Amino acid sequence: MVSYCIANSKDYGKAIERYGVSYQQIYGWVRKYEKDGAEGLSDRRGKGKDQASMSEIEKLRAQLKLKEAENRRLQMENDLLKKLEEVERRQGID
């Protein structure tokens, strides 16, 4: 989208029509591309520090977050299985 917009003399209207994005999105992407190149368009949300630069406490906190997320996933899976058993049991009775 950014290449198309730049190739068409920054005709944001054409890019909006062709790709169905908002003016703010395409304008922001073009600015980021012009400032930082392709690297400026990469999504860095949720990226934490690499393991080598973390202190021991930060490593333990990161491990704890992973375990908590795994526990939530497993709890949801258990709840779903219980519901499924309940539904199957009710259908068997009817």
Score class of each variant (00 low, 15 high):
M76H: 07
V21M: 01
M1Q: 07
S3I: 06
Y4K: 04
K82Q: 14
S3H: 11
R72N: 08
L60H: 07
K67R: 13
S53N: 10
A15I: 02
L74Q: 15
Y23L: 12
E86D: 09
A38S: 06
N78F: 14
Q25N: 03
V21I: 13
G20M: 13
D94Q: 09
S22K: 10
C5R: 00
A38F: 00
D11L: 02
N78G: 06
R44S: 07
G13D: 11
E88L: 13
K83I: 01
N8I: 00
K10A: 05
D36L: 03
E86G: 05
L74N: 13
R72K: 15
M76S: 07
A69R: 15
R45L: 04
E39L: 11
Y27E: 13
D79L: 15
G48F: 03
S9A: 08
E88F: 05
L64N: 13
D43V: 06
Y4S: 04
D11G: 02
E70A: 14
V2I: 13
D36Y: 09
Q91H: 06
K10Y: 04
I16A: 02
K35A: 04
E88C: 06
S53A: 09
Q75L: 15
Y12G: 02
Q63D: 09
Y23K: 15
R72Q: 13
E86T: 06
E68K: 14
Q91M: 11
S42G: 03
D79N: 15
A62S: 07
D36N: 09
L41E: 01
N71F: 12
K35P: 01
N8S: 07
K49T: 09
K59W: 12
L80N: 14
Q63F: 07
A69S: 14
A69L: 14
V2H: 03
E17Q: 11
E17L: 11
G46F: 09
E70V: 11
Q75G: 04
